[in-house]
Design a protein around this nucleic acid. Structure first.
Length: 645
RNA sequence: GCGCCCGUAGCUCAGCUGGAUAGAGCGUCUGACUACGAAUCAGAAGGCCGUAGGUUCGAAUCCUGCCGGGCGUACCA
């Protein structure tokens, strides 16, 4: 569709350029609100009329004859207040779409795109909020890959931060555990830490004197002194492995895991620090509240300065983030070392190290960087970008994109279901923020377990002939599909107030609905083969071998065929729009609408039972085309495609 | 205070750079399965798009004020 529209635009532009002051940007081709009005709509006469001080309808009527030979257009007419509507030649259009299915529409635009997502503090189990982050980041990655871009997925590990210090404190000082004791802990380590962390948080509230011990732990971790450093590393690595396992359940993986410990070890900050000082991006405050701190002056905020280096000489989180961002663009002149951390489907996931370990691929050095981080960190992300700007890296600043999204919150009702107690005051609120400290939250694995369990029961009911490992696999696929669709269906600026009933639903606008539609199509092809020995062939081969006319279909069926196929043909525009606006709810809705149209078609028109061979062939082509499109879109959203369900 | 975001059907939400009669799902009510799988489909009811102005041929969409709600604004991350 994108290619066809481009062709149309060019043709229209050339037909009209001599007579009308039509600008390229005005020449948009949109869709009619209703099928009976035509297929494509040209709104430009409305704008043009204004500039030329003419009546829109009259102008449109004058233009129509000049557009008599547009390719693939069967009829053209003036509509509404002055639109020019195009009716396409359906058969030609369909064949054109079929033929272009395998062709590349998009061109890569960047040398390398880096996406940073997931970024869970390695001190507790992942929760639903982290799932939203990872699903958004992963979906963006899939779409950019589809576009042909070179994509690198980074999952930043803050393995030396305060949160890890807290858990280290909990194990060492509260539980009096040694390294060996911690190693011996069985079961889900991230869950263990989830509970421990809430106990630590309340302990620390009651014991402010523990602060000095915490500072000691932090210092020892950063300096690599034992046993604190070793214990902290054990904790963060074990939790990290648990996080990767969780993400693997929903088919999310990474290329590299850059660690804060390596940023410290490789002295990224020292380098960034001297750059910032050199360029005057930060300056030392010699009086007032921020005396002794190195600060950055903020744009757009009057009289505001952000502390980058504390008065005790230590760097804040933002400072390290600026250094990391510089590294991502290859601007730091220092690099990490790496070692393999784990294998995922035969692919190695590398983790950064501060000392050379073994030959490794190179990472970083991107030309465009997406940071998938929730909207609460907009302020900090802005400072990072400003850091780049004030160092003179204007292009990189422009290409540092904060992919922001709203949080996943909890309704008082879902907290009740979790058995978590909340205050009467909180109960009055519409939603409550997830809190690691209070242990308020839905753990990712718990949610996935429940989804799988529910899916398994359904699969058992319907597929008793399948072996149980097959049923397990299908249940997992359904759970993944349900979860991923749920995370994508909301616009990113919308707070998801988590509700179990809604998240666990497999009916209506859900992932399983989409999967079910595809299963239906596949099932038709399976039966065609079983009952009639039908051999599947490439759709473009089929359509070129047989010369069949749409006229074989009844008028109503032609309309229904067209409604389905014409909508399906818009998939690449939806991908483009989603990537451009970082709004994958578009893609989700598109897939859902397509399935709705397909399911309606499915109920109306039988394929296996159809006697007329021509009609049957046309219907097979139709659903095969829908399958091609749906398969692509589902895989871009990371929704698995079970063979049966 | 300042900055960002949100307010659309009973509930949960879509609505792209302004376009033609505002759409889904859930819930409610009516119907459709000895099958191409009912995890589905057909249909009904349900909306002053928070509010008041402005820009425009045209506003849920853009601008301004107001009302309601959220988040951020740390020598935390």
């Amino acid at each position: 569709m994108i290619r066809y529209k481009a062709k149309l635009k060019e043709k229209i532009r050339r037909s009209l350029m001599d007579r009308y002051p039509l600008k390229e940007s005005q020449l948009e081709i949109s869709y009619t609100p209703q099928a009976k009005m035509g297929d494509l709509a040209l709104p430009f006469p409305l704008q043009l009329a204004k500039e030329m001080k003419r009546q829109p309808r009259e102008l449109a009527a004058e233009i129509v004859p000049l557009l008599s030979d547009l390719p693939g257009v069967a009829k053209i007419e003036v509509a509404g207040p002055g639109f020019i509507n195009l009716f396409l030649n359906r058969q030609d259009f369909f064949l054109l779409q079929v033929a272009s299915l395998e062709k590349r529409t998009f061109q890569p635009e960047e040398k390398k795109i880096i996406i940073e997502h997931t970024n869970i503090n390695p001190n507790k189990a992942a929760h639903v909020g982290h799932l939203r982050n990872a699903v958004l980041g992963d979906t963006l990655g899939r779409c950019l890959l589809y576009k042909g871009e070179n994509v690198e997925i980074q999952n930043y590990i803050d393995d030396t931060g305060i949160q890890v210090v807290d858990v280290t404190f909990g194990f060492m000082d509260m539980e009096k555990k040694t390294l060996e004791d911690i190693q011996k802990i069985e079961g889900k380590f991230d869950y263990y830490c989830w509970d421990l962390y809430t106990r630590i948080s309340s302990y620390l509230e009651d014991h402010p004197e523990a602060q000095s011990r915490k500072s000691e732990i932090l210092r020892k971790i950063e300096k690599g002194e034992q046993p604190e450093a070793e214990i902290a590393e054990l904790i963060s690595r074990r939790i990290l492995r648990a996080h990767l396992e969780t993400m693997k359940r929903i088919d999310i993986s990474y290329d590299v895991l850059p660690c804060e410990s390596s940023i410290l070890g490789r002295k990224f900050w020292d380098k960034a620090y001297s750059l910032l000082k050199e360029k005057g991006a930060i300056y030392l405050v010699d009086e007032g509240l921020n005396k002794g701190c190195w600060v950055m002056k903020l744009e757009d905020y009057e009289e505001r300065e952000k502390i980058i280096v504390r008065s005790d000489g230590t760097v804040t989180y933002v400072g390290k983030d600026i250094a990391y961002q510089l590294w991502k663009f290859g601007l730091l002149e220092i690099d990490f070392f790496y070692e393999p951390f784990t294998e995922d489907n035969g692919k190695t996931i590398w983790i950064s190290t501060a000392v050379p370990k073994e030959p490794a691929p190179t990472f970083g050095d991107g030309t465009l960087v997406y940071n998938v981080i929730d909207t609460r960190q907009s302020y900090l992300q802005k400072i990072v970008v400003q850091g780049l700007k004030s160092l003179g890296f204007l292009d990189q600043a422009k290409k540092s994109i904060h992919y922001s999204y709203e949080m996943v919150a909890l309704s008082p009702k879902s907290l009740d279901e979790l058995g978590q107690k909340i205050s009467a005051e909180d109960r009055e609120r519409d939603f409550l923020e997830v809190s690691g400290r209070k242990g308020l939250g839905v753990k990712a694995d718990d949610l996935l377990d429940r989804l799988e369990q529910k899916a398994f029961l359904e699969v058992e009911k319907r597929n008793q002939d399948l072996p149980s490992d097959q049923r397990r696999l299908i249940a997992r696929q359904i759970a993944t599909g349900a979860l991923r669709y749920f995370m994508l269906k909301f616009a990113r600026n919308s707070i998801i107030v988590f509700d179990f009933e809604e998240a666990l639903s497999f009916e209506g606008e859900t992932g399983p609905y989409l999967q079910y539609s595809l299963v239906r199509i596949n099932s038709i092809f399976r039966k065609l083969k079983e009952r009639e020995g039908y051999e599947e062939k490439d759709l473009s081969t089929l359509t070129s071998e047989q010369n069949i006319s749409l006229d074989a279909l009844s008028e109503q069926e032609q309309e229904d065929f067209w409604g389905l196929v014409f909508y399906a043909s818009q998939f690449e525009e939806e991908i483009q729009l989603s990537v451009r606006s970082l709004e994958f709810s578009h893609l989700a809705k598109f897939a859902f609408n397509l399935c709705q149209k397909f399911n309606a078609y499915y109920h109306k028109y039988s394929i296996l039972a159809e006697k007329d061979k021509t009609i049957k062939s046309l219907r097979i082509w139709t659903i095969q085309y829908v399958r091609e499109v749906l398969t692509k879109v589902l895989s871009l959203m990371g929704i698995p495609q079970p063979a049966r369900m």
